[in-house]
Amino acid sequence: MRESIRALIQKIKAFLIHNFHQYNSKLPYIITVVVALIIVIGGINMFVELTDELHDELLPQYDQAITDYVIAFRTPALTQFFIFITHVGDLYGYLIVLAISSLLSFFIFKKWRGLLQTIFVLVLASLSNTILKRFIDRARPGIEHLVSVETLSYPSGHAMSAMAFYGFVIYLFFNFKINIYLKIGIAIFLVFIILAIGISRIYLGVHYPSDVAGGYIAGLIWVVFCILIFNLVEVFRKDQKT
């Protein structure tokens, strides 16, 4: 990713130097940020399109059909499993994961930047989720809730935070110098966690499927945006030293 951004910046530099007499060394970075914003805006457009469909007659039908299918599998054992999974997507679940990540960062990888970036992405997703919930103001499903909830429904905070947090962790692991099969194994496990957290919210009766889909899209937007910006900042920092 970082090398791709550096190559793009070099091409923009070459284009600007060749075509314009007055050249600002910071301009290629500004243009790259604009490109990143355009990519993110495309993702936001997908989120807005889904949000607009909340008032359509067809989406509630899909929500109901999927919800009925998922809750048809309710059993005491499966309920306990999904309650555990949904707690993995709660604040205390993230604190445990962050504590483990801190130990790994300190004793094995000797790097703190990735940990701080992950915290930033999680906080960003959580704050934006709170704003989106209040703005969209969608009530929770009117079926039995197997866990207590106090906030509004759309988008799912659990799905959004899981996608942002664990999605960014997947990105970090693929940048670590570890065995490729271990990377793939960790990625598959974390993807399972992301999907399981989303399904748990439907199974427990506290979210519509479209809430979960909206949360995934919004979380992915933050992951992509933060990866682009973090790498751009790192490229800029190194280029300024040379």
Rank of each mutant, 00 (worst) to 15 (best):
I9F: 07
Q10I: 11
K11N: 14
K13Q: 14
I17E: 14
F20D: 09
Q22M: 13
S25V: 12
Y29C: 02
Y29D: 02
I31Y: 03
V34Y: 11
L37S: 12
I41D: 12
M46I: 10
E49D: 14
E53Y: 10
E53A: 14
D56C: 09
P60Y: 00
Y69I: 02
Y92P: 04
S102H: 08
F109V: 08
R113P: 01
G114A: 11
Q117L: 15
I119R: 06
F120K: 06
V123G: 08
T130S: 12
K133S: 03
I136H: 02
V147M: 04
V147D: 03
E150V: 13
S153N: 07
P155G: 04
S156L: 06
H158G: 02
V169G: 04
L172Q: 12
L172T: 08
F173K: 07
F176N: 09
I186E: 09
I188V: 15
F189P: 03
V191W: 09
L195D: 06
A196Q: 08
G198I: 02
I199Y: 05
S200L: 03
Y208M: 01
P209F: 02
P209W: 00
V212Q: 01
A213K: 05
L220C: 09
I221L: 13
L228F: 15
N231R: 07
N231A: 06
V235T: 03
Q240K: 15
